Amino acid sequence: MTGDIRTLLSRHLPGYRVRTVRRLGQGLDNLVYEVNDELLVRRNKAANPETLRQEVARLAAVRELSPLPVPEVVFSDEEWGAIAYRRLPGGPLSTNPVADPRSLARPLADFLSALHGTSPGRMHDLAPVDRYPAPRLLEDAELDYRDVEAHVPAGHRHLVERFLREDPPDEPRSLRFCHNDLGAEHLLVDAASSTITGVIDWTDAAIADPAHDFALIYRDLGPEVFELTLSHYEFDLDAAGRARVLFLARCALIEDLAYGLSTGPAHYADAALAHLTRTFG
């Protein structure tokens, strides 16, 4: 497979000297390779030219509006379902914890204000509309929980089970452009300076409920960082919005727990269990 990556690079970057190619990881849909410690090449397992064109255009638009660094596309290949970016500095926050997460709140607020303040019409052709209803999310969460219930400490199961018995929140009245998967694994940081060096993986970006972006901040960084981020956010989040944030954070934690205990990296499950009581308490 690394030979395929070399062939791809020779097609788009003739004369570029490839010294090293190593596979970084694999998701449900993609394989990711690092080249010369400076390029990342992602190949989709099922190439979709229209989706790839949309992603390239979306990243170009996001680079114009985001106050935080986002990937710069070097080339894309519709036939191979591949896209190459320049590697951003830093490492994922999920595996590179910072000394003071509160220092991330202001840049996250500025970032979300820029994203959510963008006219949905401007992004209409660059991102799909995501209206997955809350009752369906709650059903999905219950199915996931039943698969992993035995891995949840017995003394904490009542917290999750109480949540699963509650009514889902009302749907949002308006949708905005969102990253839509703003977990710690997609925030690059310099751990030594507690700074954000980039926001990656825009494949799930959508016109959606802004609560989705805040929910993963709540799940991964905790209520204090969530509240501090919200204090710098340019827009209002009313009581109904807060209820959706908490609901989505809890659904996302259950999803990560199930993913980490099945096909995903184990650190997803470890983080989910570590954050369970503060997310469901």
Rank of each mutant, 00 (worst) to 15 (best):
N36K: 04
V41P: 00
I196R: 00
D144C: 04
L93D: 01
R146I: 08
A272I: 04
D77H: 08
N36P: 04
T195Q: 14
L273S: 05
D140H: 06
A271S: 10
K45G: 14
P128I: 11
I200C: 03
R165S: 12
P101R: 00
I5D: 07
L253M: 12
Y268R: 03
R244D: 06
P265W: 04
P14D: 02
V148A: 06
T197W: 05
I196K: 00
G155F: 09
A154P: 03
P69A: 15
P67L: 00
S113V: 06
Q26C: 10
A114N: 05
D110V: 02
A239N: 08
G15C: 10
A266D: 07
L28C: 05
R278D: 12
Y16E: 06
P71L: 08
I254K: 00
L65D: 01
R242I: 06
Y259I: 04
Q54Y: 07
R244P: 11
D4P: 07
D209V: 11
G241R: 01
P223F: 06
V199N: 00
G81P: 12
S193G: 07
H151I: 05
E185K: 07
L237S: 10
F247S: 01
D204G: 06
M1R: 09
R136T: 08
I5H: 00
I83S: 02
P49E: 09
A109L: 02
M1Q: 13
R242L: 13
A60R: 15
A208L: 12
G25C: 08
A258D: 14
C178A: 04
S10M: 11
W202G: 03
A184T: 06
D130R: 05
R11I: 10
D270G: 02
L88S: 07
V35G: 01
S194L: 10
P14L: 03
F214Q: 00
T229W: 01
D181F: 07
T229K: 00
L182E: 01
R63M: 09
D110K: 01
L246V: 15
L24M: 12
G3W: 11
D4L: 14
A150P: 04
T118G: 01
P14G: 05
D204L: 12
A150G: 02
H212K: 15
S103F: 09
R122H: 15
L93S: 02
V189R: 03
P210V: 12
V225S: 04
N48E: 15
R146P: 02
H267E: 14
L39D: 03
K45T: 13
F235E: 14
L237A: 15
D204Q: 15
I196F: 02
N36S: 06
S174W: 14
R87Y: 07
G260D: 03
T7N: 13
G3E: 13
R106Y: 09
D100A: 12
S103C: 10
G3M: 14
S76H: 15
A61C: 07
F235A: 15
V62Q: 00
R102L: 15
L65H: 07
K45S: 05
L159Y: 08
A114H: 04
N36H: 08
T51S: 13
